[in-house]
Nucleic acid binder design. Sequence first.
DNA 1: CTGATTGCAAAAATTTTGCAAGCCT
DNA 2: AGGCTTGCAAAATTTTTGCAATCAG
Lengths: 151, 151
Amino acid sequence: MNANRSSQYVAPHSGAQNNYIQRLKEAGYKITPARLAVLQVIENQLGHLNPAQVLQAAKALNPQIGRATVYRALELFTVLGLIRPISCGDGAPLYIRAEGGHHHLVCNSCNAIIDFDECVAEPLMQQLAERKGFQVQSHLLEIYGLCAACR
Amino acid sequence: MNANRSSQYVAPHSGAQNNYIQRLKEAGYKITPARLAVLQVIENQLGHLNPAQVLQAAKALNPQIGRATVYRALELFTVLGLIRPISCGDGAPLYIRAEGGHHHLVCNSCNAIIDFDECVAEPLMQQLAERKGFQVQSHLLEIYGLCAACR
DNA sequence: CTGATTGCAAAAATTTTGCAAGCCT
DNA sequence: AGGCTTGCAAAATTTTTGCAATCAG
């Protein structure tokens, strides 16, 4: 499995991280070094990683963290709606932050995932969902095709 | 794992199936009973299933099919762009037809997946993708939140 | 015929669990 | 102090592989 796809490094941005911690506390969970490490990995680095990548990165922050703990944290955060597993070229799970929307261009050839910020569908989406009696919390828009380099 | 979510049965609709077969042939692969079974499962039934579900359903059509064959077929079809793995509540892989677009409302509470047909973003999507030099082939729009029943 | 494909069973890889020790509150 | 969490290692699951037999073209 490709362990480090992107090296784009986003600055810590502690605001959102504290928000996560806040939500953990509010839900009655303890703030532990292990959870903070996983949270920090998800928060700071990249856009999407699989459990193995999270474990590796978390170990850099907290060397004695175990894989089981990472899985448990990932599951907890998913249940709390902090993160979300998404698809990827192969069947391996990939986690992203759940907040707001995510918009990716996924290359069917080189499997690259290109993020883009502009949300092209927010209003329409909102309207449609409400018509179905659905309360929208976040969304994921993935567009598959060929990236400029692979055409 | 919930093995049979939907029992909605769509009539064979041989046109599209033949199209799949066509594409298999064109790519130089043999048309075998095992592949036909998997193809038929994906074609006819439901909207999304995991490998175990595909295996189970394929066995109904072809009792002696083995799991390895299902995995191999799933991988082949994915590479050929016939199907695509998507996310789901837990990390388990779920396959859908790759053609065109898919639009789901995913309930964060009961994990139900509600399909909807109207594509709310096609034009915007197209435009955006082209601006990035990306050639669009298909897309997946998942909206997460709470379904009417869970609110 | 001939080589791609299959099914089985074993091997790998990934996830989950059981539990005593440790840490957060 | 009390109970949620952790880390380890073992168990369970899921996915991949090796290979001889079989099948499609």
